[in-house]
Every structure is written in C-alpha cells, then in structure tokens.
Design a protein around this nucleic acid. Structure first.
Lengths: 246, 246
DNA sequence: TAATTTATATTTGTAAGACAAATTAACTTA
DNA sequence: TAAGTTAATTTGTCTTACAAATATAAATTA
C-alpha cells in the first residue's frame, strides 16, 4: 500500500500573497493606477489577517509596484511605471552590486570601457550641436580655477552622461548612467589626492574633439587611456592605504 | 517675527527603519550572513511595535537583502543578492515599460545588439567548458519535440544568460540580463504564431559553434541575424494585429 | 452668497497582546 | 550510543484597538 507524496508549500502567507498580486500586476490583470481592494477586503478574500496583508503589501511597495495613501479616497494603487524609475532602479541595483562587493573594480572598469566605447562610437555618429555645446560648457566648468573637488566630480559625471545621451539610444544611456553611478564611490575616493585634474581635463578635451570630428576610433582610444589612468590612480590609493596601515 | 520652517518627514516608520537597515547593509556595517537583532530587540531599540519592525523586514526581504528563519538559532540574516536576483528586481519595471510601449522597441533591440555583441565577443575569449556544456544542454532542450512554447522561451532566456555569464564580467552580465528580461513580453507575444523555432535553434547552434571556435566576429554576425529576425517577426505580429483590428 | 471652518467617514499606519509553527539543543530512554 | 522526547527560542499569524491623514459634506461666518 502506497500513496503519493507531494512537496509541501513552505512559503509564508505574506510572500505567497505578494507573489500572486505581483503576477496580477505583471500579467496586466491589474493596471497602472488601478486601486487594489482595501486591506480589509483583501484579508477577507484571502482568509488571512490584516497584518499579513500589510506585510504582503510592504513586499510589493519595496519593489515599487504599489504605493499607499490614507483617507476616504485612499488605498493601495498600482504604480505607473516610468522611465525615470527604471533608470533609478538600474542605478540602485548596480550600486548595490558594488557596495556588496559582488563585482570587483576591474570588472566594473572593464564593463565601463566596453559600454562607454560603444556610447562613444555611437556618439561620434549621432551627436548633435547642442550636445557638443554641452560638452564644451562642462569643459569650461572643469577648467575654472575656483572649482571645488566636489563640483569637479559632478561636472565629470555630467560630461560622461552627455556622451551617453549623444549615443542616441536611451536604453544604452540608462545602462551607462548606472555604471557611472556605481563607480562614484571610487571616484570620490581618489578625487582629492590621487587624480590630477589636468590629466582628466586633457582627456576630456581630446574626447570632445574626437566626437566633434566624428572619429570613433580615436574617441575609443582616448577613453581607454582615461579609464586606465583612473584604474591606476585607484590602485595607488589602495597601495597608499595599505602602506598607511602598517 | 519669523521662524524657520523645515520639511517634515512624512515617511512611514517601517520604511524609515528599512532604509536605515539597508544603509547598514550597503555600507558594510552589516555583512552577508550576519544575524540581525531579534524582532523584539529591534522593536525596543527603535521604540516601535514589533509589527512595524516586521513590515520593515518584509521590505528588505523583497529586495533579497535579508532572509528569516524560525527557532532558537533562527533570526533574520543578511543575504547578498546575486546578479540574477538584482536583475530580476528590474524585470517588473522593465517588463511593464515595454508592455505599455513607454520605451521604443527599436531602441531596446539596438541596445541589445550592442550589449550582446560585446558579451559574445568576450564569451568567445573567456568561455569555459562548463558554459559550453550548459549551452549544449539548452540546445538539446530546445530541439526536444515535446517542449511547450513556454519552456522554449525559458530555455531561450537561459541560453542568452549563459552567454552573458560567459563574458566573464558580472557587471556586463547584470545589464545584459536586464535587457533580455525587458524584451520578454515581446518574445512571449511572438512565440506562438510568428517565430519559427527551427530558425531560432539554427541561430543558437551556429552561435554556440562560433563561441566554441572562439570566432568573435562570426558570433556577432549570427547574433545580428537573430535580433533582426526577431524584430521583423515582431513587426509582422504588429501588422497582423493591426489588420485584424480592421 | 461666497468663503472659511468644522465635523464626519474612510482607509492606511501603529500598537499591544496572544498563540501557533518551525527549529535546535538538551535531556531521557532503550 | 542511538533514537526519541521535551523545552526554549524566534519568526509567523491572529485579534483588537486606536491614531493619523485625507477628502468631502455640513455648518458657520462675513
């Protein structure tokens, strides 16, 4: 005599309910700006307590799938996806990879080189006059003697973002933004002591000229120089830190 | 007589606590596998009720930053989200944007071609025997006559993810996963009627061979063929749909 | 009558207390 | 010593109550 044994479901109630609601959102059953049933209604429908529903909703809120509001016209609403939010999520996830040391610096630098080379190549093809003006403007900002290190870093980021924008492909630009942001902690670390602004500015000037002249190969070569320079500076910073710890 | 007015903090307690704990995880104060204080301890420390703590922890759990376990050696432990988990967290946002046509499909396809060409080139250099075996295995799965359309799509995704992994760069793999996932609604849409499996399988076989032989240019050419094929199939699906609506 | 203030109803946010479920270590029994 | 039982701990769920925020309707004032 035998009977079948099936795996039992060990997931918590709140995670099961969150998964179901997520599926309803992703498969289009629940649409952007739709109002979910109230917490009380959901707890009746699922035959669970209200705190369990709230826990499930917090799981969805953490993924930006829903937002809540109090009051007679309040409730829990499916969030409308936006391009800005996707960009933020991508950036936040990339930053986490770095913070949690899931990826090492060589990997990020290599990825940056690949991605930004692609952006440079496309930028050399697609750049507009206003993007060139914007690059020129940032170069002027960077050469100003009064600029603080902080503002120099900010201008550096903007310079590279303009290049990403000039690729003419928004998805690529988002990906590029994410990688640039993920590198910010490192950039901040070497900003004060280990990075010669004049070298960076020179790279930027030559990069701008190459893009202006639509010379993709030259642009990629200059970019490679800059990324290698920055990687070496960072290695110096690490060595200096290691030496200091002795 | 005047006094300063500062913005008041409108965030809920549970989201503030989740943010603080997330920061502690990301800045390295809390490391992977560290055990957080018990729910009771956290509620005493933060001077809030235990359900509020639980809601905060559910927010972190949804981001794969913690996991919980019952029992005397249980508790809430810090986890390190994997590249796959982090990119999965982008899936919902990206998927919805593509479904709602908030982003231009041509842009995503163009970005995919650039990114995946880079991954193919690196995969041709860096692929391991086990990655080749995994690709071979997926090809076998795909050629099985009994496979459902759903399972074929899943295998297709895995095939491309293996290529991203074979690039040997986790940051690149991360962004590649995100782009692949964003295209899933489109792939699902054309899966049943507009996509010849034999064509896809042929592309995959040739891609595998090119990577095996470490011929990066050939791999990139085949990939271009596949992406163009899929874009055309999708255009056919849209046309067919437009015609059907008349 | 128009503008302002107050009251009411609704929904989410938080708290307190109780009990259940899962798990591990310690203890007991064979 | 191995197997079984028990106790303790922590998370998971439930019940009940009240607070906070909000929008609308009603009441009051000018």
């Amino acid at each position: 005599m035998s009977f079948e044994v099936e795996p039992v479901n060990r997931s918590s109630l709140s995670s099961q309910i969150a998964d179901q609601l997520q599926e309803a959102i992703l498969d289009g059953t629940l649409k952007a700006d739709d109002r979910l049933p109230t917490e009380d209604e959901l707890s009746k429908r699922y035959q669970v307590s209200r705190p369990t529903i709230r826990e499930a909703l917090k799981r969805l809120a953490a993924k930006n799938l829903v937002r809540s509001k109090r009051g007679p016209t309040g409730g829990t609403f499916v969030t409308k996806p936006s391009v800005a939010q996707l960009s933020d999520s991508l950036t936040s996830a990339a930053t986490m990879l770095v913070s949690l040391k899931e990826v090492d610096l060589d990997e990020i630098n290599a990825a940056r080189l690949e991605l930004e080379s692609t952006c440079c190549r496309l930028a050399a093809q697609h750049r507009s006059e206003s993007q060139l003006s914007a690059l020129i403007h940032e170069l002027e900002v960077q050469t100003d003697e009064r600029i603080t290190a902080e503002d120099f870093c900010a201008s550096d980021v903007r310079f590279h973002r303009i290049i990403a924008d000039a690729s003419g492909n928004r998805m690529l630009a988002f990906v590029m933004y994410a990688v640039i942001e993920a590198l910010q902690p490192v950039a901040n670390m070497i900003a004060y002591r280990f990075r010669e602004r004049t070298v960076i500015i020179d790279h930027h000037r030559r990069l701008l000229e190459a893009i202006q002249q639509q010379d993709a190969d030259l642009a990629c070569g200059i970019l490679k120089e800059q990324i290698e320079y920055l990687a070496a500076r960072h290695q110096d910073a690490q060595d200096w830190r290691a030496g200091k710890a002795d």
